[in-house]
Amino acid sequence: MNIVEIRDLVKNYPLGNTTVHALRGVSMDIAQGALMSVVGPSGSGKTTLLNIVGCVDSATSGSVKVGGSETTSLSDRELTFLRLRKIGFIFQTFNLVPVLTALENVEFPLLLQGTLPKAKVREKARQLLEAVGILGHEQHKPAELSGGQRQRVAIARALVTDPDLVLADEPTANLDSETGDSILRLMQTMNQERGTTFVFSTHDPQVLRYAKDVVRIHDGQLAGG
């Protein structure tokens, strides 16, 4: 079963006086439980693809179904709700909220959901911090953590809501290779243990060995699977 189904996805966006054709008719499926890597050089459209799959950006044309919902016809509110319930994000620059501690950062999506009592939220966040291996740092602010630690926190934050799909845009780009490896291993483990679908983009061929599936993208088009 596919968690994501993309058909003829086109994305153009204006840049100054010209139009950038970021995606030129992409069609692909992402199966549930996948650990997929989207590979391509810088500016190939992989971030755009991930953004559209993650419902933070909209398609110019084509169809994108996430968890069975056609996202191109959803309102901003519905898309936001979809993100909150079903999608986790991991960013190249970690994007932790600087004013919150590691623990609070992880708790944050659950608090936004507002469905679990505070104690449960805390418990779950702790479990995840433990799972990503930085228990003991939960009261640290992001600025007090190393890059690898931050990304672990980010992974914990992405996973805390038990999303169907986690999107990671160049998750290791800002890390040294050793740390990057550990992060990818972590994602791999999470994929195996929890069955969470992971899609990560990278321009680093070294990273590919962690992926079960690889999609290559070049100039806004898939270059064969």
């Binding site: 993100r83 909150l84 944050f108």
Partner: peptide
């Protein structure tokens, strides 16, 4: 942007 991605409504 991050917060919106995490599911915070506008």
């Amino acid at each position: 942007g991050t917060l919106r991605s995490l599911g915070m409504q506008a």
